[in-house]
Every structure is written in C-alpha cells, then in structure tokens.
Design a protein around this nucleic acid. Structure first.
Lengths: 153, 153
DNA sequence: GTGGCTGCAAATCATTTGCATATAC
DNA sequence: GTATATGCAAATGATTTGCAGCCAC
C-alpha cells in the first residue's frame, strides 16, 4: 500500500517523492539490514535515474525524522532498517549477516544512566551465527569448534 | 611502568616497539575514548617521526590481540580504549563526549542468543549528558528542556 | 510560482596498502 | 641475520557537498 507510506512521509514532514518511497519500500520489505550501496543497487534497478547521493540524502532525511534507523554495527559502512521496536542486533563474523535478536534491554529512552538522559540505545552483539556454527560442525565434525581468522570484534 | 607494557605486548605476541608502547601508554592514561587522529596527534608530539599509518597499523594490531578495544559508537571515526571489563558507553549528542557507564549487561561472551554464539557485546547509549543537561537549565531556566538539532541517534 | 528535491560531479575524510628502509632480538 | 615494523606516498571507499534544473503541491 503506497498510500500508507505517503502518509508516513507526510506526517514526518517530508515530501513523498518517488525516490523516497522506493527507498522506504525497499527497507520495509528487506530485513537484512542493507548498506546504502545495497539499497542503491536495489532501488536503482527499478528506478534507473536515481543516483547514490540521492540515496544518501534520502537515508539521512528518513533517519532524521525517525522513520528508519542507522546501525553502526560495522565500521566499513552504515546499515539501515525501517524503525521498529528497539532491539539488539547480532553480527556474524563468519558470514557477515546481521540478525535481529530478541532480548530485553536494560535501558530505555527516557531513562537516566549515571545522570545522563537516554534517548536511544543500540546493542551490537558479535560472534558466530547459528548457521555458521552448524556449517562448521558439518564440515569438520571430528575436531573441536575452533575460531578461525577474526573478521572483527 | 614501561616494563609492564612491554610484558603485556610480548605476552600478546607483539614486538614492543617504541611506537606501540607510546600508543598503548596514551590509551592507558586517556579515558576519553580518542579517535585515531587524536591518538596520532598526542603521540606525534612526543614522538615526531611517527606517521598516521603506523598509528592505524598499531591500533589494528593491538585490537587483534585484545589489548585495546575499538568502539563504533559514532559513524565518523572509530574510538579506542584500553581493554577493561566490558561496559556500556554513553555518547552525548550535544558535546560529543563519550562516557563509560556502569550498568550490567544482559548478554556476555560465551552466551547463546537465539542460537548464535556470543563473543562480544557493545552497548551504545545516546542522549544528553549530565553536564549538558545542567548547562541547558542554567542558561534558560524558565523554558522547558527542549531538544535542539539532533546530531545523530 | 517556488521551495524543496534530484542528478551530477567533485570534494572530503577515515582508513588501507605497497614498498623500500630501518629496527628488534 | 632475519623477520617484522616503520615511514612515506598513493589508493580506496564511504559519505558529503555545491549547484543548476526539475518536481511536488
């Protein structure tokens, strides 16, 4: 329902341009936490005139009004998701995938921590995801589970 | 005590060069979570031959062996701290300072979340710090506490 | 109409890399 | 002596910006 997205943008004070609607639609449907580059490629394929700077400007505008969120879970590039209930994220150092995880937070917007006023909380968990643990066992189930080269931490 | 740092690097399997010792000493003494640029400037002033690439290589090496940690709390640049007990960080969107905060974590390395193996947890809290809240009240104590331009979230 | 977008090109800025030399042990 | 790290310069890559024309309303 495009109308719903138009309303969402209008309510946020943003002109609902086709480009912004396309980016937002993509994020509504894609829960893999894409980078700006990935968003650009996907949107560009249906909307060939769009340029990367517009994607960046759009992401920045959507973020500012709280319609999407930016994750700094990886140093190389920001990741984006349509705003939902705040939740932690897990990034696999083997395959690089990012998962939403279902865990309560100890702090919430509006709280006070050590006298500081909380407005947002981002929890990033790093490790090896369920799929990659399984693969490792399947490929080599006589040796212990050993950690290979670390991508990051 | 430089000997202690030499031992720390040796135990981690790293050659204790003067450059690495200088970077590590700076991080041991500075708890403001500096960027690579800030570390470079500080170390360069006592060690004028050091070059930024060496600071980056050093930070990367120290991180890989777990002697320091890299924070991705801000998109613009990584921040570093000497490794301590894992703890959440708070970044003030008014002054940009980063504080260590004293809160328990709900997940720890070794845990399992949704089937994923946890190796590290980074919690980043954003808002307005105690100092900046106080300043705002002092400068304008007849109006409500209003949030100005958002730097980020 | 006009102010806010988009497309385009160029700039910025953090971070990385290749390579010859210097250093740690 | 030899493997490893440093210094230097150039490359990379994400993100930003300035600006002229276009689009939404």
């Amino acid at each position: 329902m495009p109308e719903e997205r138009i309303v969402r943008l209008r309510n946020a004070g943003l002109t609902p341009t086709p480009q912004r609607l396309a980016v937002l639609e993509y994020l509504d449907d894609n829960h893999a936490h894409p980078t700006a580059e990935e968003i650009y490629r996907a949107v560009h394929s249906r909307h060939p005139t769009i340029v990367k700077a517009t994607v960046y400007n759009t992401l920045s505008a959507l973020k500012k009004v709280g319609v999407i969120q930016e994750l700094t879970i990886a140093r190389e590039a920001a990741r984006y998701e349509a705003t939902a209930t705040p939740h932690p994220h897990f990034m696999c150092r083997v395959c690089g995938r990012i998962y939403d995880v279902d865990l309560p937070c100890m702090v919430r917007p509006g709280d006070d921590v050590n006298g500081h006023k909380v407005e947002a909380v981002h929890t990033y968990i790093y490790g090896v995801c369920a799929d990659c643990r399984r693969d490792r066992v399947e490929n080599d189930n006589h040796s212990k589970l050993v950690v290979p080269e670390a991508r990051d931490a």
